[in-house]
C-alpha cells in the first residue's frame, strides 16, 4: 500500500488522460443531443492524441531540432548526437495526422447532423426516434 500511492501520484498525467477519455465516452453514449455527442467524440480523440504525445516527452530534453547541425566555424561536425537531449518526434508526426483526420470526421459528422435537423427539425435523439416510429 505504501508503494502504491507514490506510483499513482507519479503517473498523475496518465490518470487525467483516462479521465478525459471517459468524459468523452460518457458524452458519446449518454448525451441526448447530436451536437453534444460530436463534442464528446472530439474530446475522446484529443485525449488519445494527448496520451500519445506524452509518451514521447522526456525530462530535461529539448524540441527535436539538432543543435549546430551545420558544424562549427570550420565546417566539421565534431560532436555526436546525444539521444537523451531530444524529445522523441515519432509520436508527434503520427498525431499530426490524427488531428487532421479528427477535423475531417468532425466536418462530416456536423454535415450529417444538419441533414438530420433539416429532415426532423430537431437534434434530440429521442424525438427523432419518436418521429421515425410515428411515421
Amino acid at each position: 500500500m505504501s508503494d502504491l500511492i507514490p506510483f499513482i501520484v507519479a503517473k498523475y498525467n496518465y490518470w487525467i488522460y483516462i479521465t478525459l477519455m471517459m468524459i468523452g465516452l460518457y458524452a458519446m453514449i449518454a448525451k441526448n443531443n447530436l451536437v453534444k455527442k460530436i463534442v464528446g467524440m472530439n474530446i475522446f480523440q484529443t485525449a488519445i492524441i494527448l496520451f500519445y504525445v506524452s509518451i514521447g516527452a522526456k525530462k530535461g530534453a529539448t524540441i527535436p531540432i539538432i543543435e549546430h547541425a551545420h558544424g562549427d566555424a570550420h565546417g566539421a561536425v565534431s560532436h555526436t548526437i546525444e539521444i537523451a537531449h531530444y524529445i522523441n518526434p515519432l509520436p508527434h508526426v503520427l498525431m499530426l495526422t490524427a488531428i487532421v483526420v479528427s477535423v475531417a470526421t468532425l466536418g462530416v459528422a456536423l454535415a450529417l447532423a444538419i441533414k438530420v435537423y433539416n429532415r426532423h427539425k430537431t437534434l434530440e435523439e429521442d424525438e427523432i426516434i419518436d418521429q421515425i416510429k410515428g411515421i
Partner: peptide, 22 residues
C-alpha cells in the same frame, strides 16, 4: 511538452476551424 508542431496544428485546426464548424 515540447511538441510544437502538434501545438501549431491544434491551434489552427482544433481551436480555429473546429470552432467555426461548430
Amino acid at each position: 511538452m515540447g511538441a510544437v508542431d502538434v501545438a501549431f496544428t491544434e491551434a489552427s485546426v482544433g481551436a480555429g476551424v473546429s470552432t467555426v464548424f461548430f
